[in-house]
Design a binder for these strands. Structure first.
Lengths: 139, 139
DNA sequence: GATACATCCTCCAGCCACTGTAGGTTCAAG
DNA sequence: CTTGAACCTACAGTGGCTGGAGGATGTATC
């Protein structure tokens, strides 16, 4: 049996985060000692490990909830899982594309800027006037 | 003189967002009509345009505050501005790198998964066991 | 002048996924 | 039996807004 602190250490989670997962129903309420402290078994360790791993891969808590539910229904088609992962992948790809646009624009701004005074700073000029931008990064 | 709604439309901002910027001191308190409604002049339009443009480029509100302050001190060296932009660029690059790692891992998970049942789903297996991952995406 | 109705006002709650703090209790070691 | 680390609950705060309630104002039309 693990204390919440031990579970936290093993999974690289903060203690408060574990309690938060319990609050929102992502982790089940564990057993308690007579004094009211939480004690966790192997199943909790696995479940929290799964959650943290999915979080590290950027999945949102709602998606993780769905993945955990599916994990408990071994006969459902795998495509249900794939669907969630694919959705997430698309989201990641969208975010990469957006950030690449920003990177380009920031790079260009910085490249054009000499070592003068603020009054003639290209960075500020570009920020003042969107027309100076090559890309439409507003989306 | 513009109403808050007109200013919102011109800058692609929500009305509430403008009031929020005023609350946190990013936009100055504008004039008011006798009835207490806000009325904005050209300076406000410029300032909000600047803010929105910087937001679209991903700058945080604190960075924007610094940029606006510098914008009002034309004799300061341009490097002060560059420093802020460079910091932001680095942040963007870090986020891209992180997302690229995720993309790779998600891609691989999905590629390995056949059209079977959840019980033999590679996606879930990988999530259950971090050792299955090629990259250390926990950072 | 009355009415309609879009827009404005303030105040407050909620989003995501935690993180931190205050003030008090429990547990395990020595 | 005492110490002190770790635990408990409850709540506030993060960033950057967004939405809603409930009421006041501004403008166009009759």
């Amino acid at each position: 049996m693990l204390t919440i602190g031990a579970l936290a250490k093993k999974t690289g989670t903060k203690v408060q985060t574990i309690r938060y997962y319990e609050d929102i129903g992502l982790m089940p309420s564990p057993e308690r000692t007579e004094g009211g402290q939480r004690r966790y078994g192997a199943a909790s360790l696995d479940r929290l490990g799964f959650i943290r791993h999915a979080r590290n891969l950027g999945f949102g808590l709602d998606a993780i909830r769905e993945l955990l539910d599916l994990s408990d229904r071994p006969d459902r088609p795998c495509s249900d899982v794939d669907e969630i992962a694919r959705r997430h992948l698309q989201d990641v790809e969208r975010r990469i594309a957006r950030l690449e646009t920003l990177r380009l624009e920031l790079d260009r701004m910085l490249a054009e800027c000499g070592a003068g005074r603020v009054s003639e700073c290209r960075v500020l000029e570009v920020l003042r006037d969107h027309a100076e931008c090559l890309t439409d990064h507003s989306v």
